[in-house]
Amino acid sequence: MPWSRFEKQWSIQEEGRILSYKDALREAIDQAMCLDPKVFAIGLDADDCYGVYGSMLNLSHPERVLGTPISENAMTGVALGAALTGMRPIHIHMRVDFLPVAMDQITNYVSKWKAMFGGKPKVPLVIRAVVGRGWGCGAQHSQTLHGMFAHLPGLSVVTPATPRDAKGLLLQAIALDEPVLFLEHRWLYKNEGAVPEEMYTIPLGKGQYLRRGDSLTIVAPSLAAIHSLQACEEHDLDVDLIDPRTIKPLDRELILDSVRRTGRLLVVDYDSPVCGFASEVLALVAEEAPEALLAGAQKMTFPDVPMPASGVLERRYYPDPDRIAAKAKAMISRVKGEGALV
């Protein structure tokens, strides 16, 4: 599989210590393991020579990296049991498509455990999973699923777009006493950016502006944030670009403030369209700031079909910077009041 052909995406030019997304993840895990002997990583092929696409190679505590059989459901329960009894597990899955195998544990156990016992238990469990299409990998190795998991009460869903956020959000997720699903886009692994060397955390539920503008608000998580920024910069678009950083909790105020100012909203979400993150953001604005929608609100997502394998179809399935730019331009050019709510 020729990963190198497309693996490195357009990325933000920054000054400082430059690190890849993958190495930022690795550094977060290593620093957390060095700081706290209760942190350990566990997962299918977590301990092999590839180290989860390099994100777990050469750690200072290899004895705390445990491989597992192909038993995602039981192993999620094992990780939960360890979390409840004093450890801080990071359960890693090389593809998000393996998480549905563990859906009983994630839905009925992990996400419920704190609330089901009156908020008393501490559940310091991070589930890492790599999302995104490969190369002709078809329907079972190309999913995102962050919207599906965000639907579950009791589970936070984190989607870092930059190396800096990958490290800070992962350290935050590990530090929390509640379960966090941490979704890393495979296409961002080689992207580089400035990453502080010291340990730092970024709180869940705090989005960020990647670009400021007045004519259109774009909300886009994970790889979609980077592609949207690329579209804006290459086409010089007057866009307020928000990377929510976390799907849940969601930085509602940041989105509402922006939409109230720009009057136009585009959600770019590399996930399925029905009952998903994009729909959630549109619902938020419809509930809280309907007056701001007068110049239109749209979403750009996958089509509502499973991913096909053929390259021709696969490239059409995923939105890309050019299509984002075209959509944004069309929305910006629309006069307020015209074509409202479409």
């Binding site: 350990f40 459901n73 329960g77 409840l84 004093g86 450890m87 089901m116």
Partner: peptide, 25 residues
């Protein structure tokens, strides 16, 4: 008793996780 579950079977894994915790610590 770190909780109990009403979906038959899954709690077996949680006990194994607690045992892993004893071993790791």
């Amino acid at each position: 008793i770190h909780g109990s579950s009403a979906i038959v079977g899954g709690n077996i894994a949680l006990g194994v996780g607690a045992a892993l915790s004893f071993k790791l610590q």
